[in-house]
């Protein structure tokens, strides 16, 4: 990663969540958020940035994720060890409630953090994959809007998918 930040004084940004909580982050962490990196590159970044779509609970998690990724990548460890470390961290990090996962997914999309977006999508997909239709509905509070007749018909036609 860029070493110029170490020579000059460390730049910090203040990120304000939807519910008004302010987080102080270093530039190396802030640039992980593509939206902010673009602001910085375009020289439009002010030290105080409001994020209207993310609650403090989620923003705290996002910052934790970005911090860990920024530190691991600039830590000077070999690529393979860093990779291993990130994998372990990611696995651990995804070990949260499925509603948090959905919020993280949409926050990662809004803040444009590609790796986190990939990670949450992948995790959500595997949650769905391992469950029956009824379990998925229950897990995410999804209302079944198929009528009994309709559902029976699709299930019959899609019987191949249940083998």
């Amino acid at each position: 990663m860029s070493s110029s930040t170490e020579l000059t004084e460390k730049k910090v940004f203040l990120l304000k969540s939807l519910d008004g909580v302010i987080f102080e982050v270093e530039e190396s962490v802030a640039v992980q958020l593509e939206v902010i990196r673009e602001l910085i590159e375009g020289d439009c970044a002010r030290p105080f940035i409001s994020l209207y779509n993310v609650t403090s609970e989620i923003l705290a998690l996002v910052i934790e994720y970005c911090k860990h990724h920024a530190e691991t990548c600039s830590g000077g460890t070999s690529a393979t060890i860093a990779d291993e470390d990130l994998k372990t961290f990611d696995n651990e990090f995804m070990n949260v409630d499925e509603n948090i996962l959905l919020e993280l997914c949409s926050a990662a999309d809004y803040l444009d953090i590609k790796s986190l977006f990939e990670l949450t999508c992948r995790t959500l997909a595997s949650l769905i994959k391992d469950r029956t239709i009824i379990e998925v509905r229950k897990m995410f509070n999804v209302e079944n809007d198929f009528s009994v007749v309709e559902e029976k018909a699709v299930r019959k036609e899609f019987a191949w998918a249940f083998k």
């Binding site: 994959k129 239709i133 198929f146």
Partner: peptide
């Protein structure tokens, strides 16, 4: 990310 058509098909029965 589900990728496999079988999983997609099952998933499509969750809701409209």
């Amino acid at each position: 990310k589900l990728a496999d058509l079988k999983f997609l098909c099952r998933c499509s029965i969750v809701c409209k």
